[in-house]
């Protein structure tokens, strides 16, 4: 019997997605005007809920405690006597909380609306013979280019580093490298071929230092807007073009 009750409570409490949600529930339950919240009543009920959560030995998320202190703070501010001739018009202490609650409520409703739409693979279906993963693979063949971010570049860099032979990495390379040389080298290659893939540029240069220098050179060139990096699709081949046709 005892067990059953505990389970019931757990399910009920699970409904609340954080303190704002709990407050919205209390407002709805008490049929309170959200613009005129009786802060004493709400604070009292809110704290009761927290006690219940504690009594059930559930982990009390920090956010709930922050909200509790906010409520108590607002309550104390509302208890302070208002000076008869206020020097400056003071904002209602509840205003910020009301704004937060309204915003939260708006998005809760927006989420519910989204969920009611005819969802793909739930309500509507397409004639998809291919799995989404396969579709992505075929898309890489298309030369439809999209500008990529540094994140994709870093990912490609990781891919190349993970592919290189581990043994080669052990060698100590005393060759002196300079970023300027590599930048010049890339620009020279680009002036000849007009476009290079990111992989092309790094292949054959198997030691880690050279890979890192090349990568740094690319980042520098992109920053200076000397080159542009494009990708055909997510995880596709990254191509580098000179930013200005020479």
């Amino acid at each position: 019997m005892d067990n059953e009750q505990t389970i019931n409570y757990a399910i009920k409490l699970d409904i609340f997605e954080g303190p704002l949600d709990l407050l919205l529930y209390l407002i709805k339950k008490n049929e309170i005007d959200i613009y005129n919240i009786p802060i004493a009543l709400v604070t009292e009920q809110y704290l009761q809920y927290l006690k219940m959560i504690k009594a059930l030995n559930l982990d009390l998320a920090g956010e709930y405690l922050v909200m509790a202190s906010t409520l108590i703070h607002i309550k104390s501010r509302m208890l302070l006597p208002v000076p008869e001739e206020p020097e400056e018009e003071e904002e209602d202490p509840r205003a910020e909380l009301v704004r937060q609650l309204l915003e939260h409520k708006t998005f809760k409703e927006a989420a519910a609306n989204l969920g009611e739409r005819p969802l793909l693979e739930r309500d509507v279906f397409t004639r998809s013979a291919l799995l989404p993963e396969e579709v992505e693979k075929t898309n890489t063949d298309e030369e439809e280019l999209m500008e990529i971010s540094v994140f994709e570049l870093i990912e490609a860099f990781h891919r190349i580093v993970s592919q290189i032979d581990k043994k080669v990495l052990m060698e100590i390379d005393l060759e002196k490298l300079s970023l300027t040389d590599i930048i010049n080298n890339i620009m020279e290659q680009l002036s000849v071929t007009k476009s290079l893939t990111f992989e092309d540029l790094l292949k054959g240069k198997k030691d880690r230092r050279r890979i890192i220098y090349t990568f740094l050179a690319l980042l520098e060139l992109i920053k200076l807007r000397m080159i542009k990096a494009y990708q055909t699709s997510v995880f596709g081949v990254i191509r580098i073009f000179p930013a200005v046709e020479s």
Binding site: G18, Q100, H104, F107, L114
Partner: peptide, 24 residues
């Protein structure tokens, strides 16, 4: 769903902004 709705309507958005709306 709620997080997705916030991202959809308020994008581009950072995590802290989403958290200030959701409160968690």
């Amino acid at each position: 769903m709620e997080t997705l709705a916030i991202v959809a309507y308020k994008q581009p958005i950072v995590k802290s902004e989403i958290e200030s709306i959701r409160g968690v």
